[in-house]
């Protein structure tokens, strides 16, 4: 018999058997990660989203399942890199001899990001956040399909960063970039 109300795509994702079978962390943490993954994929058009239950280097269990993924545009540009990119774009425009009328074409390739799924009702401490940072690498590992063409490493990416995804009970998800260290702010 068909149910009166069809389950939402998110609900069917959370009830996915494969997700339920992964026993590395509490099911609530897995469904939270699935919710954030769903939000990134369908609301923000991210691609290559992967779930990480174990640290990429030491292969130890992470404090909770993390996600990694590729945003459609560059998510974060360090202010020093931004200056460099703008200079580069200015030079390129001069070479094309278009004068100052055409817009600057800033070329910043998107980069893979770590995502830490959290709930707004949770309490966090510095110790727990530090443990998450200790478990991750500077850049998330590339999925196998992309490995062959190997993205060049960005020399400006020198501190670990993670996208803190916080989900509220009304399914709103907000995203904040957290750097591991003192990193000067963007001048946007």
């Amino acid at each position: 018999m068909k149910p009166a109300v069809l389950p939402s795509p998110l609900q069917s994702l959370i009830q996915d058997e494969q997700l339920q079978s992964d026993r590395s962390h509490l099911p609530s943490l897995h469904s939270l990660a699935a919710q954030v993954q769903h939000n990134l994929q369908y609301q923000h058009a991210w691609s290559d989203l992967r779930l990480h239950t174990h640290a990429p280097v030491a292969n130890e269990l992470l404090p909770r399942p993390l996600l990694s993924g590729l945003p459609p545009q560059r998510l974060y540009t360090h202010p020093d890199e931004q200056i460099e990119l703008l200079k580069e774009a200015g030079r390129a425009r001069k070479e094309r001899k278009e004068g100052n009328t055409s817009a600057l074409e800033v070329k910043a390739e998107p980069e893979r990001e770590w995502i830490l799924p959290t709930r707004l009702s949770e309490k966090w401490t510095l110790r727990r956040l530090a443990a998450v940072f200790d478990g991750i690498t500077l850049v998330p590992p590339e999925p196998r399909s992309v490995k062959e063409q190997e993205r060049p490493a960005n020399p400006w990416r020198t501190t670990k960063r993670i996208v803190l995804a916080t989900a509220d009970t009304d399914s709103t998800v907000v995203y904040y970039i957290v750097h591991d260290g003192v990193v000067k702010p963007r001048q946007n």
Partner: peptide, 11 residues
């Protein structure tokens, strides 16, 4: 000391 810098992601 461990310090974390937080900025809005703009998503």
């Amino acid at each position: 000391v461990r310090a974390l810098s937080i900025e809005w992601a703009g998503l």
